[in-house]
Every structure is written in C-alpha cells, then in structure tokens.
Simulated scan of single mutants.
Amino acid sequence: MERVLISSGSPYEDTIGFSRAVRVGPYITIGGTAPMDANGNTVGVGDIEVQTKQCLETIKSALEQAGSSLEDVVRTRMMLVDIKDWKEAAEVRAVYFKNIKPVDTIMQVSGFIDRDWLIEIEVDAIMNKIDNNNPYT
C-alpha cells in the first residue's frame, strides 16, 4: 500500500521530521496536534476551549487533505497539562464527535514543546469509503 504524508505546514515538521498525518490504505494516523494557526502561532493562550477547537480544526483539515473526514475517526487522545481542564476540552470535542462517538483517552502530561500549549490531540481514522477520483485514495 502507498504511504501518503499530509503536511499542515507546522514549523516543527521539518525540524523534528514528522507529518501532520500519515495515510496507508484506509488507515490515517494524526499525531499530537497543537493549538497552532497556519502561521505557526499559538492560539488561545490560557483558554482551553479555544485551543481544543484549534486542534480539532487542524485535525479536520488534515483528514480532508487525506480524502477522509471526522466521520472516519475511530479514536481520539486528548493530552492536557492540567487534568482539571478535561471537562471543558471534552465539551468542545463533543461538538465535533457527539454523533460519531469514537473511543477516547484523556490524560495529563507534564508539558509540551511550547509552554503556552494546554492541549494536544491525536486521532486515528479508518476510511469507510475510498474515492477513486481522489489522488490520495
């Protein structure tokens, strides 16, 4: 199966040597997605809800670039620097996944590369339909 790399343009991609998402056949894995805008700036400093939304919007875009969508997500992982933020983050997640209901893990971590990041989110997806007109499928 062909391996397709999806970039989000993060300045860390070349520095660290990673892709926002990797797709192999119908499987898509999206690594720790930080609350950064398209220019690499942290959004929502101090605001877990804004940061969670930014992470999920970046993930949504990566899935779409891979020929997929949020409906194909089967697992999410939310990593928080303060577990007390879990409810607010989960409420934002529910806006995106309330009817899809992928499995989820919420955990506390000691920190991220940028001290202003309150959350990173990872997802795994399995495409239900493959579009033969999409070059990534």
Rank of each mutant, 00 (worst) to 15 (best):
V4I: 15
L5Q: 12
S7F: 11
S8D: 13
E13T: 07
D14I: 09
T15G: 13
G17M: 07
F18A: 14
S19C: 13
S19L: 06
A21F: 05
V24S: 08
G25R: 05
P26Y: 01
T29Y: 14
I30Y: 04
A34M: 09
P35D: 11
D37H: 09
T42D: 10
T42M: 15
V45T: 14
G46V: 05
E49L: 03
T52D: 01
T52M: 02
K53M: 10
K53I: 05
C55T: 07
L56R: 02
E64N: 08
E64F: 04
Q65T: 02
Q65V: 02
Q65E: 13
A66N: 05
S68V: 01
V74I: 13
R75D: 12
R75Q: 13
T76P: 01
R77Y: 04
M79L: 14
L80V: 00
L80D: 05
K84Q: 12
K84P: 02
W86T: 03
K87N: 10
A89T: 00
E91S: 10
R93T: 06
R93P: 01
R93H: 10
V95A: 09
V95Q: 14
K98A: 12
N99E: 15
I100R: 05
I106T: 12
Q108K: 09
Q108P: 03
V109D: 04
S110H: 10
I113A: 15
D116T: 07
L118E: 01
E120L: 07
V123P: 02
D124W: 08
I126Q: 04
N128L: 04
N128H: 09
I130E: 11
D131V: 04
N132A: 12
P135I: 15
T137R: 08
